[in-house]
Design a protein around this nucleic acid. Structure first.
Lengths: 190, 190
DNA sequence: ACCGTATCCGGAGACAGTCCCCGCTACAAT
DNA sequence: ATTGTAGCGGGGACTGTCTCCGGATACGGT
């Protein structure tokens, strides 16, 4: 990669990081290009879609989440591991405003280039859920992907209600309480 | 109101209903105006914002939800009433794609003209939650407004994952399980 | 040090959406 | 029929996305 291309890429990432932190992931991309002192064409060449830029900014977070899943699974009981990981996941979704929606889209859109980028994380999460279900810690009448969507929904709800980190974790606690069996049989719903 | 104004208003509502059902509440407003054989200026005069149009289309649903809350409260136990109402609420949010986000915004934006439109519903829902909490059916470490946001989050998650009605109700069942005490003390979260 | 070329840059502009503005139309009251 | 005016409509300003291509530039070979 040519040196100027590398430099531009980094300036774009820095500008994007600042803009996302200030105004969420829906900020104007042209603004980001301007902030980076770069033409908008350059931005779109490096990052063809907004999703691609978001992914590049978050970069290693997805593998980190996958790694954390493995670590938690090794060091804790199935239930505790899942709960701890969901907390990490939801906190990640709170990094920037609008990120929950962004991630939720990517989770199922197989045509998205990010679909594979977060594949490892998704697989790790499914494994966490499956293990917890086999161990009887988590109700088994729910799909692993639904658990991820529900967690994203909690992050989204926190965003909408302008809740802080503690508020969102508290909402997550409610969801988690619905997921865990805790020695009771999940309440049927009619 | 002049006869042509009334006619235009109804044509706009019909076009909006069709467009929302087809493509969600984020459809182009100019398209709706075109479908109604009306200038876009006319649309914006009748409905200054997209939210206003959405509200007009949904019209009586909010009072209906408030009324249902009262009826359920009178005829069922506090816990059952809340659960049944949440199901109605979430189903309402599934009427059109994007509606959950729209409603979540209005729930807290006091400057929105719809804030008061759904005030009765909000008040009824809060009452439902408060009663269930006083009766010990629902954990009391959570705010009534958070319950609404969480329910909206479930509807949103269903939308994102392209779940059908049954799938969303199932997700709601998990949340409800976390909300209800069912003779156990809610699990602390650390 | 120089040069040729593959690579990359930048911004103009097409396109889509929102929303305002203002001259004109047609309704309804007399 | 006339007239005052509520209401219409669509042109256009503005914002944002994304593409295209002429021109600039850095790199590798000499």
């Amino acid at each position: 990669m040519r040196a100027d291309a590398q430099r531009n890429r980094e300036r774009l990432l820095a500008a994007a990081r600042a803009a996302f932190a200030r105004a969420g992931v829906e900020t104007s991309l042209d603004d980001i290009a301007r902030d980076a002192n770069v033409g908008s064409g350059t931005l779109y060449r490096h990052f063809p879609t907004r999703e691609a830029l978001v992914a590049a900014v978050l970069d290693d977070r997805y593998e980190a989440l996958a790694a954390e899943a493995a670590r938690l699974q090794a060091e804790h009981s199935p239930g505790e591991a899942l709960v701890a990981w969901l907390k990490l996941f939801v906190n990640h979704l709170m990094t920037y405003r609008g990120l929950a929606a962004s991630v939720a889209t990517v989770l199922h859109d197989e045509t998205s280039p990010l679909y594979s980028a977060c594949h490892a994380m998704r697989a790790a999460a499914y494994e966490l859920v499956a293990t917890a279900q086999r161990g009887g810690a988590v109700r088994d009448d729910i799909d692993a992907s639904q658990v991820l969507y529900l967690a994203a929904g909690v992050a989204w709800a926190g965003e909408q209600s302008a809740a802080d980190r503690a508020g969102v974790e508290h909402m997550l606690a409610v969801l988690v309480d619905g997921l865990l069996c805790n020695g009771r049989v999940p309440r049927p719903f009619g």
